[in-house]
Design a protein around this nucleic acid. Structure first.
Length: 515
RNA sequence: GCGGGUGUAGCUUAGUGGUAAAGCACCAGCCUUCCAAGCUGGCUAUGAGGGUUCGAUUCCCUUCACCCGCUCCA
């Protein structure tokens, strides 16, 4: 099958805009880096994926290893929480690397990556300091320093640069304020152009109340999970759940990403679907393995091909210090292919979060098991996926190109997730056909998202629905008035079936349930 | 953040220092009995700001956004 020249991603961006899935945020003002809006079809698709997750996670959770349904309840916590939350979670520190700006070159560096070294030279037998040079740590350190020293030497009017000793180089962060002021920046020619190391916070912040001082500073959550930990005790006290049980949440999160990229893949405002599964400490590994398998199965169930999914076990030395195991569920994105990129992370977080919040809040978060007569802080397994990444997956996975079709580009989205389930058309906009079609539309729209369309040729209407990923189109034709039947056209095969008007509901219901 | 690329209508493209062109899409009407048919008409664009110039979409500068590669990625 021939493919257009342009990349799959650019075609997805184009189709998304053309059909109203995803628009650039604030487009008429030139856009805003890292922000996207979901159009009529996009938000419908996103809601459908979210609802499916919620159904499969909260309303009808999977069966556990013992064959009994798991116990998982929902939560919708605030985007803004007490600022101490993010100190306890580690985000305030982890999201705030010290950065240094250069006033001359306008560049920004991570302060601990800058190595500084004082270089000396000799002139007329006298050893003199040339200056404190800096370069990024790495293999090139020596050559970079020497290159800069030579340049400086020329300006100084000549002399013999003494051999440098790279091992004596120290990170910028370890220098005193005075010493920092003497450093020549990485891309600068003058002394003291580097700013003091500053916290470069990746969390968005704002202020609660009208007085904007440090005491009122709060953060927009960078993940939904912490809200769950904060309410873990209230949920147990009010919902008659006990370990093992889960708490699920869907919502917006915000991160000041250094580099937003790849359409909605890495955006600064995005949506997450997270579930924290609380269990006795000794069962942690078992539930971790359970959820890795379960989440892979789920992504397949929403229409992702198995070969495009990959459970990437994070090596022990790269796993966060509090985690006893993390598996990234990765998808073969158009921009990572043939490699994979993160879609969801399943992490065994041990009792780290609850213990942190217990310590920071001075609240006892032990679970008291009255049967076994013991108390413990539950361990947690967290499947955390990106809802907006999931939408991108459905678009990428569903994108089809077939020049033999009326619309070469079309979306093969699982019918139950499709933004529009049914297109309803009169074959010709006269002879009583529109009236019958409209009656059918008014009936079916109560159950399914439907689009009624009587404009232009029937082929165009089918093509439009193909691009929107609508799985079925129902057409009322000249025969309908006589035989009380309509044709139902299948998106994937373009084949048609004659179905009696009074059987349409059953037909559609069966198709949507089986597909 | 660095380097490279791109920015003209909803989409895909053309073009020019002097009235911005086309195809498709979209809308209206006619027509049309199953896969983007036809006819007529219509809407819509030089990302933003500044400079050079009598005149800039074109040349220059700045900026913004997107794409690619690095960097970063709790």
């Amino acid at each position: 099958m021939s493919q257009p020249e342009s990349s799959l991603m650019s075609r997805l961006v184009s189709l998304s805009k053309r059909r109203g899935f995803i628009f650039q945020a604030s487009e008429i003002y030139g856009g805003l880096n890292g922000f996207w809006d979901f159009g009529p079809l996009g938000c419908q698709l996103k809601n459908n994926l979210r609802d499916q997750w919620w159904h499969d996670m909260v309303e009808c959770p999977p069966l556990g290893p013992d064959g009994k349904p798991l116990s998982i309840v929902g939560l919708d916590s605030s985007i803004i929480q007490h600022p101490r939350t993010w100190e306890a979670s580690g985000h305030a520190a982890g999201f705030a690397d010290l950065m240094v700006d250069c006033r001359e070159s306008k560049h920004r560096y991570r302060a601990d990556h800058i190595l500084c070294l004082e270089v000396f030279y000799e002139k007329a037998g006298v050893k003199k300091p040339l200056g404190v040079l800096s370069a990024l740590e790495g293999d090139e350190f020596d050559t970079t320093i020497i290159k800069k020293a030579k340049k400086l030497m020329q300006k100084a009017g000549g002399g013999e640069i003494l051999p440098i000793e790279a091992s004596l180089a120290v990170p910028f962060t370890t220098l005193s304020k005075e010493q920092q002021g003497l450093v020549i920046g990485l891309d600068a020619e003058n002394v003291g152009t580097l700013t003091e190391p500053r916290a470069f916070n990746l969390m968005f912040h704002t202020y609660v109340g009208v007085f904007q001082d440090e005491d009122s500073k709060v953060y927009l959550r960078p993940e939904t999970a912490q809200g769950i930990f904060l309410q873990y005790k209230n949920i147990m006290d009010s919902s008659r759940v006990k370990p093992p049980f889960g708490v699920a949440q869907v919502g917006k999160s915000f991160r000041n990403e250094v580099t937003p990229r790849n359409f909605i893949f890495r955006a600064r405002e995005f949506e997450q679907m997270e579930m924290e599964f609380f269990c006795p400490p000794e069962d942690g590994m078992m539930w971790y393995e359970f959820w890795v398998a379960e989440r892979l199965r789920w992504w397949e169930s929403v229409g992702c091909r198995k070969e495009n999914l990959f459970g990437h076990v994070i090596p022990e030395n790269e796993v966060a210090h509090y985690s006893k195991g993390t598996t990234d569920i990765e998808y073969r994105w158009p921009f990572t292919a043939p490699n994979f990129g993160e879609l969801e992370g399943v992490a065994y977080r041990t009792d780290y979060d609850l213990k942190q919040h217990a310590a920071f809040s001075k609240t006892n978060l032990d679970y008291i098991d009255q049967e076994a007569k013991r108390r413990y802080v539950p361990h947690v397994v967290e499947p955390a996926s990106g809802l907006t990444r999931g939408v991108l997956l459905l678009l990428a996975e569903g994108y089809q190109y077939d020049e033999s079709r009326a619309s070469p580009e079309w979306l093969k989205i699982k019918p139950s997730l499709a933004p529009i389930k049914l297109g309803i058309f009169p074959l010709v906009n006269k002879d009583g056909m529109p009236e019958v079609a409209e009656k059918l539309y008014l009936d079916l729209r109560q159950t399914y998202t439907c689009q009624f369309d009587a404009k232009q040729s029937i082929g165009k209407r089918y093509a439009r629905m193909d691009e929107a990923g609508t799985p079925f189109c129902i057409t009322v034709d000249g025969e309908t008035l006589k035989d009380q039947a309509v044709t139902i056209r299948d998106r994937d095969t373009a084949s048609q079936e004659r179905v009696a008007l009074d059987k349409v509901r059953a037909y559609v219901a069966a198709k949507l349930a089986s597909a």
